[in-house]
Structures are given as C-alpha cells and as structure tokens.
Design a protein around this nucleic acid. Sequence first.
DNA 1: CAGTATCCGATGCGATACTG
DNA 2: CAGTATCGCATCGGATACTG
Lengths: 232, 232
Amino acid sequence: MKIRGYGQYCPVAKTAAVVSGRWTLLILRDFVLRGTRRYNELKRGNPLIPPSVLAQRLKSLEYAKIIARERSAHGNTWEYHLTEAGEELRPLIEAAGHWGQRWLGSTLTRNDVTPSVLMWDIKRKLRCNELPPDRTVICVEFTDLKRMRFWWLVVEEGNADICMENPGHDVDITIYADLLSLTQVFLGSMSISRALSEGKVRTSGRRELTKSISRWFGVSMFADDNPLNRTG
Amino acid sequence: MKIRGYGQYCPVAKTAAVVSGRWTLLILRDFVLRGTRRYNELKRGNPLIPPSVLAQRLKSLEYAKIIARERSAHGNTWEYHLTEAGEELRPLIEAAGHWGQRWLGSTLTRNDVTPSVLMWDIKRKLRCNELPPDRTVICVEFTDLKRMRFWWLVVEEGNADICMENPGHDVDITIYADLLSLTQVFLGSMSISRALSEGKVRTSGRRELTKSISRWFGVSMFADDNPLNRTG
DNA sequence: CAGTATCCGATGCGATACTG
DNA sequence: CAGTATCGCATCGGATACTG
C-alpha cells in the first residue's frame, strides 16, 4: 500500500495524492453525502466500478485513515465509516458538487442516468413527513425503459422502502416519466411543476398527492446551484 | 479530446471526471493560488511533471473551459488564465489545501521539498511593505545543499526578484537554514521565532531585519490549519 | 520560451469468474 | 453479502530528445 505522491510539500499536493485516483472522489461522495456504509451499497451507487478497484480504493482510504472498517452492529458483516479526517472532507466534496452542478450540469446525457441510482437518490431525499401518516405507496414507471421500468416506494412510519416488484398494497400515486426527465427534475434543472405542466412527468392516483408533490418529492442538495436558479 | 466520465449524473462525478487526473489538481492550484499564467511557470511549480503531460492537461482544461489560452500583452508569447468557471474552482482547491495541511501536514519528508519551489513560494508571500523602503537584499543559504545552496531576494519598490547568483549589492540579511526546516517554517508547522530560538534557522546581518522577520516573512495561506495551531 | 515527438514500460483499469 | 483471483489490454505516465 504505497501512495504515489508528487514530490511537493504543498498541502494541495498532499491531498491530491490521496483523493485524485479514479473513482476515489465518488466513493468519498457516497460516504459523505449518501451516508453509505457497506461495500455493496458502494457498488449500487457506482454501477460501473470494477469490484477489484473498489476493494483497492477502500483499502487505500483505510490506510490513509479516512475511513475505518469494523464489524456491523450485528457483528455478521463489515461496515465502513468515516473517521474524523474523513468527515472533514465534506467541504471538498460539496465544493465539487456545487461546481459540477453549476458548470457541468448541462452536459447531462442518456449515458449518465441509471434507474437504480436515481431511485435510491429519490428514496433518500423523500420528505416522508410531508406524506400522509399512514402507509403510502408510490409507483414510478420509467416510460422509456423495458427492464427496470417499474419501481415502488413504500413509505411507512417515516421510512421508505424500495421494491422492484409490486408490493401488493394499493398504489396511492404513480409517477410516469422518462428516465432523463425524472433525473433532471431530481437535479433541479427542471422544476417538478414545470415538468408536470409540460407533460414530461405525469401522475395518476390520489389528487392530493399530486398537488403536494413538490413538497414531498425532495431534490438533490445541489439543485439550487443550477445556473437556471441564479438570481444574479 | 475526450473526457472519460463515470456514467453518473451526480455533479460530484461530473467534476471528478474533469479534475481528478494525475497532476490536474496541482495545475489548478498554480492557477488559482499562485496566479500562474505561463507554461514554464507551471513547470517550475511542478518540477516532476513531464512536459507532454503538462501540455495534455492544459489542452484538457482549455477544452473544459476552465482555462483559456491567449497571446500575452506583448503578443510574443502565450498565456493561460482562468475563466469564470475556473475561478470558481477556488473553494475546491482551498478545501483541498486546508484538509491536506490539517491531516497530512505531518507527512512532510525530504522527498517533498525543492529549493526552487520553496523560494518562489517565499518570494510570492514576502510582505514587502514591512521591509525598509529602500532596496533590501535577502540571502538564503540552504545549509544542507551543495547545488542550489544560495539564493538572493532583491526587494525594491514593493517588488521582489529572485537571483541564483550574487546580484552584487550588499546583503542586508542572510538566512541560514536546512531546506526541510525552512519549508516547515513556511508551512507554519514551526513558527519562525521558535525556529530561530532552537537554532533551526539562523540569521546574520542587520539586526532590525532579524527582529522584524516574523512580520516580513510571510507563510503559506494554509499555515493556520496546522493541527499545532488549533485552539480547540 | 513554449511546447512536440517519440518511445517504452508500468500499471491502472476493466471484465469476468469465482468464493467463504 | 463482501469481497478475491486472474488476466490481458489499453493508456497513462515518465524520460528524453528535439524544435520553431
């Protein structure tokens, strides 16, 4: 486990030696912004990372004392968590996100979107307390997909679960959208109300859930950095 | 000129695709923090970068609209400058520097230090207005070096020049130090007064310049992030 | 001064398969 | 679930030499 540096004393260079390998910043993002703790969660959040690379990066980050690996609460599996040093990478990660949204947000293409990643992001940002107190079932149908077309979010007691098969309960609201449009909504480059009025997103089901959708449908933490949202 | 992305819509991933190549963050540091504008300045600040890699990175950054290349004022050479997008990378670079100083500052070794880079950093941070209004000549002698042992800073009219040969003027103050110690002083991991009292750094010449040294000898912008300086 | 040209070697990386 | 093992290719990166 050797870290290849740059032969420079500059603190920026020291940091760069640790965080600038391929995939590394994304793994850190998962820890810092998504609260990820497990190997397979990291795979889910980064579908294209080779498992060997992920394993190697985790070892490096552990070696650098940015994360630590330990038994989970139940003791039957492993978990990673940020150290204090790792926590303090938050400003760096957030700066990267703000900048990317502001200056590269318009580069979004079909190659950048994956239904599973989007659905987990949506789930994570769902404002459950803005939904009815009893169980709510939200169905998402990606109108342009064959596989991975249907997703269900079951919200109960302030907690959301993701299913890929019909969970059997009555569906309270269905959201129809193509994958790219719903991603744009999540990223804040298109407001959900505009998406609805333009027909990019449609809904069916209980009317009051559609009316309140912009309250319970949370968006990316970088949504406000979108150039469209600039006040200046 | 293709940028290899990660197949993710996340703004952090978009940024990572642009800035996380080897040397890239350091080149950006030179633009953002050192005010570098020229190819050879970049080489000076990054002695180990291969010229072909530097050229490729500059092209990439230009392609990404982070820097722009244009004729210098005199028109006989080329200069780079940050675009607005590039300027806004400052928070990212500074976050990297703060973190590196705080968590990796103690990893400094002999392999990380270069006299030329240090001298240019010192020159850049010299507080000329704290020096006498007339010409001041500062000699730095790296006591552990054979080559690159002597350096002169000629400060005149609020401006400092670096020489590697005796400029001929009388020397007002000479600073003797080994390369690692003076680097530590610059980085703030050792205060100059402590370095003097411990004999890591010595001076000769005009007494008033030694007495005021902690005023005119500027340090790294990350010096305060050193764990030693923590108040908490 | 500001880069190209060339070349080679390491290794990072990706793909796939497999395991306790 | 949480990774290893293997493997081969590509390409990145480093060194050196050279040029308008």
